[in-house]
């Protein structure tokens, strides 16, 4: 497992490097998870705050590599957001549809991959985002989600089936 800080590099430098390298993929992951741009930005910021706080924490659970660790923080943050009563109360889809178009971040088309992913149930969305989109290995995905490799395999099979079916439907509409 990589250490949070490479010898010779300060914590500040490490954080700065991470932010440069991973902000965009984390932001997009959060957006796909939450379907809301503002919340995704908040989740991104919160991810960096937690990363700063815990990067040297010896008690933190091991992950395969720094990217996987950061994604775990991000995914957990997104999960917390979705658990809040606020999020449950507001029907995100309806809220978006009710606003005039200029108030909505550029929305993916209905048959786009983004929309397909956003529409998936959480447990499959996570797998798609981590394994397919972020390119983590099975082991890395498992360490981020806290699953065994076998559990990841099971979910992956189901997620693949759902995604494949949706993609093929999308192709037939083009």
């Amino acid at each position: 497992m990589e250490h949070a800080v490479v010898p010779g590099m300060t914590r500040e430098q490490k954080l700065s490097e991470w932010i440069e390298q991973y902000s965009d993929p984390i932001l997009r992951t959060c957006y796909l998870y939450l379907s809301d741009m503002q919340m995704a930005e908040d989740a991104l910021q919160e991810t960096w705050i937690k990363a700063w706080k815990y990067m040297d924490d010896p008690s933190r659970k091991p992950v395969a590599n720094e990217k996987a660790w950061l994604l775990r923080i991000a995914v957990n943050t997104c999960k917390d957001y979705r658990r809040t009563a606020w999020f449950r109360h507001v029907d995100r889809q309806n809220a978006l549809e009710d606003l005039p178009p200029r108030f909505v971040a550029a929305e993916p088309a209905d048959n786009s991959v983004s929309m397909i992913v956003m529409d998936l149930p959480d447990k499959y969305k996570q797998i798609i985002l981590l394994y397919y989109y972020q390119g983590l290995t099975i082991q890395e995905t498992g360490s981020v989600l806290g699953f065994s490799v076998a559990a990841v395999h099971r979910r992956l099979r189901k997620a693949e089936a759902l995604l494949k079916s949706a993609l093929e439907r999308g192709e037939s509409h083009e």
Partner: peptide, 19 residues
């Protein structure tokens, strides 16, 4: 192939989302 396709599609569709 699916992995590549998903990555490519999402990156293209979400290209406007960046810092």
């Amino acid at each position: 192939i699916m992995k590549q396709r998903v990555q490519q599609a999402l990156n293209e569709e979400l290209a406007h989302i960046h810092t």
